[in-house]
């Protein structure tokens, strides 16, 4: 699907936790795949903000974002009916053909959202999907029920033990799984690479200039050379990441 610049209309925009918001928008989501992202132009800001796709289908796009600075703080103030200019679909996304029969999904904090469309499509393909969602505290947990509603086996961990299993996602890995898909902060992804016994795909986050491969602002070194997180990524295979 060719990258296009499209106008989307906000349908809903609500907080799910103290800092994590869910926005749904109406617009053209043709060809959007799990693990891809959109680049959102925000009024008064120069650079667009890259936000991962949480869900996409039937003309509705769901973005789940954390308010961490000027751009995402501004997103949280936008009302229903506001129109946003989005560049999409961007990035490679997860390759679901590698999943096997019992894939494992590992999400940490605001790394959880891109796993939702991933889980949805894997369930639609009849896979036995296990999901481990990691948060800092009980108050930060979101989307646990959504993954359960898809028919996934869901385990939640919290770093302080206030909800679910005490610890990190790597403290709650199931014994058996065919492959994994992960998204979360870098220390989590590094631990996931060390703790998993299969190959898998991990989605990285990086500050970006353009989001479509032009500026070289987000390049990472990999075993396969220099790769742009926005273009050859954001999803990388476990074996190509250098820690």
């Amino acid at each position: 699907m060719t990258i296009h610049d499209s106008r989307f209309t906000i349908l809903t925009n609500r907080p799910m936790t103290a800092a994590v918001w869910e926005m749904t928008l109406a617009g053209d989501v043709t060809g959007v795949r799990p693990g891809q992202f959109v680049n959102v132009r925000l009024p008064g800001l120069y650079l667009r903000r890259p936000i991962s796709v949480c869900d996409a289908g039937n003309g509705v796009l769901t973005l789940v974002y954390k308010t961490v600075g000027t751009g995402t703080d501004l997103m949280a103030t936008l009302p229903k009916g506001a129109v946003l200019d989005l560049l999409l679909p961007l990035g490679n996304g997860y390759d679901l053909t590698a999943a096997g029969e019992s894939p494992l999904l590992l999400g940490g904090g605001v790394g959880v959202p891109p796993l939702y469309l991933t889980a949805k499509q894997l369930r639609a393909a009849g896979k036995d999907v296990s999901v481990v969602l990691g948060f800092n505290t009980k108050d930060e947990i979101f989307y646990e029920d959504r993954f359960r509603a898809l028919g996934c086996r869901v385990t939640v961990t919290t770093a302080d033990g206030s909800g679910g299993i005490k610890g990190f996602v790597t403290d709650a890995l199931p014994d058996a799984y065919s492959y994994f898909y992960a998204c979360g902060p870098l220390p989590m992804l590094k631990a996931v690479c060390g703790s998993t016994h299969t190959s898998g795909q991990l989605s990285l986050e990086e500050r970006m200039g353009c989001g479509f491969g032009a500026c070289m602002g987000c390049t990472h070194k990999t075993t396969a050379g220099y790769k742009r997180v926005c273009k050859e990524g954001p999803v990388f295979i476990k074996e190509e990441l250098l820690w």
Partner: peptide, 15 residues
């Protein structure tokens, strides 16, 4: 990285 940062009406890069 980071090589990019937002500024008022512009951006910084250090590619």
């Amino acid at each position: 990285t980071p090589r990019i940062a937002e500024t008022p009406a512009g951006m910084l890069n250090a590619v």
